[in-house]
Design a protein around this nucleic acid. Structure first.
Lengths: 208, 208
DNA sequence: CCCCTATTGGACTGTTCAGTCCAGAACTTA
DNA sequence: TAAGTTCTGGACTGAACAGTCCAATAGGGG
């Protein structure tokens, strides 16, 4: 019935359901995860789920919102601290390290959901477009800052760099997930970094 | 029972089933496509399907093989005709055009299946790794040819360029699918092309 | 033509699924 | 503490699902 939780207990129940669904869907896919499996994992009952969500699709969209919070919001905070080339490099390295620590099993939760539902769930697709849009904007802000501070040359287009960076990261995460190795991820993000560096402002133009 | 078709009629039946499954799974996702839906679309009966495939997973792997044939084999033939920068650019443009013509609805069939099943079907994941590996090798062959002919500078690593190119293309296709616009695809592949061009051999080193 | 194998139709089974429903428990507010 | 609301347990339903089975047909080699 799509109720908003009004008590701490209700909020906790809803959160447990969404967290369990997010975890199961990340590994088993969206359509491969049943309501019953989610409830078993969350230790909740059916009436709880249908009290907070209209139907399965509502739960899926809540999972997308949850993963956006986990992934994009975290990236937003992380990217806010990126303003130099070494910091950008570090950001890319952390992505590789994270995947390595998780055996490349998940890739990007948002990207995985997107690939699965974008074709047949227009509402979910829209939510995901917004999430990706925010991520792209955060990246564009980084490149804009770096351009303003002279780390990136004046002619560079921060938006284009952001879109390309996001696409490359997503593709690299997919390849890593398929090969279950951080190797393609490492190679790709390394090359991406090298190419991005070519957007740096020539030192002789800024250092005088 | 995983029988190989022994007559023309049997081969036709099997092909119809796989083609219908591939089409449905491309739009509705793998787990979102039921056996019954496949049979209805193919105009076949259950005993036909279970005569040629052991189970649902067998059908999925056959679909992966089919899409590999359609996508990777086609790319292989297409990339065999790429050996110069304008030809490489043309190849990237064709990807954008194809997606535009299909309203970015499908993205890459291989990539979509990969994102969905890589997490929980190890056999399928392996098949997909092989498919992506072949695609990468074909791309590496292009860059190796271009290096040998002096279009790419001697220090470039064809394998790294191939992996990064494949990852970027896959990521761009995903973004296009989510936004249902060729715009991010166009921007990303444009930028990718610009960056790849930086791997070109300096003219003064080869033109004398 | 006959025999043998490949192929096919479709009914059937048992399970799992999403979603409904209602009675009762827990909590809030006054 | 009493009334009103929120939350919860879990049985129940009907549909959809993957997979089985067998009888029947089609087609090819002799």
């Amino acid at each position: 019935m799509q109720n908003t939780p009004r008590t701490a207990r209700g909020r906790d129940s809803r959160d447990r359901i969404v967290a369990a669904a997010a975890e199961l869907m990340a590994t088993g896919g969206v359509e491969g995860t049943s309501i019953d499996a989610v409830l078993a994992a969350a230790g909740a009952s059916k009436s709880q789920l249908y009290h907070y969500f209209t139907d399965r699709q509502g739960l899926i969209r809540a999972v997308i919102a949850h993963q956006t919070e986990v992934v994009v919001d975290a990236q937003s905070a992380r990217l806010a601290r990126v303003g130099t080339w070494p910091e950008l490099r570090r950001w890319l390295e952390e992505i590789v390290e994270f995947q390595q620590d998780h055996e490349c099993r998940v890739g990007c939760p948002i990207g995985s959901i997107a690939a699965e539902v974008a074709g047949h769930d227009d509402d979910a697709r829209h939510d995901l477009a917004v999430s990706f849009g925010r991520w792209r904007d955060d990246l564009a802000a980084v490149f804009r800052r770096m351009r303003d501070s002279g780390e990136v040359h004046a002619g560079a287009d921060p938006d284009q760099l952001a879109i390309t960076t996001l696409a490359t990261v997503q593709g690299a995460l997919l390849l890593g997930k398929v090969h279950r190795t951080a190797e393609p991820l490492r190679v790709t993000l390394d090359t991406l970094h090298r190419w991005l560096r070519a957007e740096a402002a020539p030192p002789h133009e800024n250092d005088r």
